[in-house]
Structure formats: structure tokens, C-alpha cells
């Protein structure tokens, strides 16, 4: 292994572990027959998620007269379904790195990721993907740019230089990264997801999210995340640091939803509403 490769592996290993329970919460909450006690078990086993849910329940938004100190208690005092919906709202944020209010780049990236996630899931539903599986599209959208978080954490200067180069020369960011860092964010993100033991399709999807849609062997997941990434840039929610934005609707989506990106977005319904909710979440 060359020195550079070794450094990349160390970077990936230096990242925090993936909150598996959060992933499980997303799966559980999309099942109408989910057992409340199972949900309690999964939330309870994740201290960060538990704290975030309790924080929300004890906030003035709920306006309760009594303070709630456990998930079981919350189930009784605000109801099973309210806890379930709260978990669903809080969980995706936990998959993202902790944001510093002053870090504009990271905040913009988080918003971009959430929006890509929403659109990718919307596209999946539109394409007839089952709800439980549509969650994977959401997660893929959420994590597709995670490689940039790795760069920002371990190679801030080089990453800055790559972004400036991309912006100045109007070239794709991944190309600038390859030239300046030696690896692009898609590849490092894919390696991270593999290390997190998430499904291989997810790693593949992240690895190929900038590849040409004409490439052979692309899955629907790859196509949806590819399009969602570009569409969310076009909508202007958040910023990914990548100036180039060429919009091609991949073939399987095109034959069902048409080739005009605006009409594809319109067909997804209230994407903007969901985005606005995402913005609220990030600010809270």
C-alpha cells in the first residue's frame, strides 16, 4: 500500500462509527405494524438519539407540565405514535456529522444532503420502490457526499484548494480533488460506508454518484441518487461545494417521469415543503 493510500485508510478509520440504530429506526418506523416495545429497545440502545428525542419532548414545543426522562415514559405521556414520528424526524440528523453553527460549508452540505435524501426517496416511491426499501434511497442521498466531511476533517487545506480550483476553472469538484488530493469524495465516501458495514449497493451508489448515467450496469438506486443530487442543487437548497451541474435524467426515470427535470420535480409533490422542514430542523 502506498503512502497516500495508507493515509486515506487512516482517514476513514478515524471517522466516528455509524449509528446503526438510527438506520434501524428508519426501517422500523416505515412499518405500520412496528411493535412499540421494539422501537423503545432500538431508541434506548442509542444514547444520542434518546437524548435528542427527550430534549425535543421537554422543549417548549410540547409544553408539557411534567419533565420526561425516559423513552418509556415518553410513550405513556405523549403517546406511541408521537414518539415514533419524533424519532423519524430526529434520526436522519444523527447520521450526519455534528454541525457547528458557524461552519457555513458544513451546514450547507448538510442541507444539500437532506434535500438529496428527500428527493431520492421521492423518486424511489415514484418509481414504485417499496417503502422499506425507499429508506435506503433516503440514506444513500444523506450519505452521498460524506466523503467531503472526511476531507474537511482531515485535509482541510487541500480540500479548500480543490474547491477553489473547481470554482475558478469551472471544473467538476471530483476532478479537482483527484488532482490535488489524489482521491475524490465519492470514493472515500464509499470506503467509509463499506467500513460502516452498510449494504454494498449503498457504497456502489456513493462511489458512482458522479459517473455518467450512460455507464453500463447502473442500478435504480444509482440513478435516483445521481439525479437527486443534481436536482437538489438546481433547487438551490444548501450547497455541496461543487459548481458544475449538468442535468441529465437517467433512462429508466426518463421513460416513466419524462426528461424534463422540472416536471420530474413537480411529479414528486411537496418537495419544497419537505426542504423547508429540513431547514427548520438544521436550525433548531
Amino acid at each position: 500500500m502506498g503512502k497516500l493510500e495508507k493515509q486515506f485508510v487512516e482517514m476513514v478509520e478515524g471517522m466516528p462509527a455509524f449509528p446503526q440504530n438510527v438506520y434501524r429506526v428508519l426501517q422500523l418506523t416505515s412499518d405500520i405494524n412496528c411493535k412499540p416495545k421494539e422501537l423503545v429497545r432500538v431508541i434506548d440502545s442509542d444514547p444520542v438519539l434518546t437524548v435528542n428525542i427527550l430534549k425535543a419532548i421537554n422543549s417548549p414545543y410540547f409544553g408539557l407540565t411534567r419533565s420526561i426522562s425516559s423513552i418509556r415514559q415518553a410513550m405513556v405521556f405523549v403517546g406511541v405514535n408521537t414518539v415514533k414520528n419524533l424519532a423519524l424526524t430526529v434520526a436522519p440528523l444523527e447520521m450526519l456529522p455534528e454541525s457547528d453553527r458557524n461552519d457555513h460549508f458544513l451546514n450547507d452540505l448538510l442541507l444539500h444532503s437532506l434535500c438529496t435524501a428527500s428527493i431520492a426517496r421521492g423518486l424511489a416511491r415514484k418509481m414504485g420502490v417499496e417503502e422499506v426499501e425507499a429508506n435506503d434511497y433516503f440514506v444513500a442521498g444523506l450519505l452521498h457526499d460524506y466523503g467531503k466531511v472526511v476531507f474537511a476533517r482531515f485535509m482541510q487545506e487541500k480540500f479548500q484548494a480543490a474547491m477553489q480550483r473547481a470554482s475558478r476553472d469551472r471544473m467538476p469538484l471530483e476532478q479537482a480533488e483527484l488532482e490535488i488530493i489524489g482521491i475524490d469524495h465519492a470514493e472515500i465516501g464509499a470506503q467509509l460506508v463499506t467500513r460502516w458495514n452498510l449494504p454494498e449497493e449503498l457504497a456502489q451508489c456513493i462511489r458512482s454518484h458522479h459517473h455518467s448515467v450512460a455507464e453500463a450496469g447502473r442500478s435504480l438506486l444509482d440513478d435516483c441518487v445521481h439525479l437527486a443530487n443534481r436536482a437538489s442543487r438546481k433547487l438551490g437548497y444548501g450547497h455541496s461545494g461543487n459548481p458544475s451541474c449538468e442535468l441529465v435524467v437517467p433512462e429508466p426515470i426518463r421513460s416513466l417521469l419524462g426528461q424534463n427535470i422540472e416536471s420530474v420535480l413537480v411529479s414528486l409533490g411537496d418537495v419544497v415543503g419537505e426542504m423547508e422542514k429540513n431547514q427548520l430542523l438544521l436550525r433548531s
Binding site: K35, K37, R72
Partner: peptide, 18 residues
């Protein structure tokens, strides 16, 4: 939400009583 005898049953029961 728990069956009698399961861990959590008594605690949940106390919150319900309250």
C-alpha cells in the same frame, strides 16, 4: 406495550398508573 413478566413491564405500568 410489554407482556407481563417482560423487562420493562413494571416500569411501564408505573408510568401508566401515574
Amino acid at each position: 406495550i410489554y407482556d407481563p413478566g417482560e423487562p420493562g413491564y413494571d416500569e411501564y405500568g408505573r408510568y401508566m398508573d401515574e
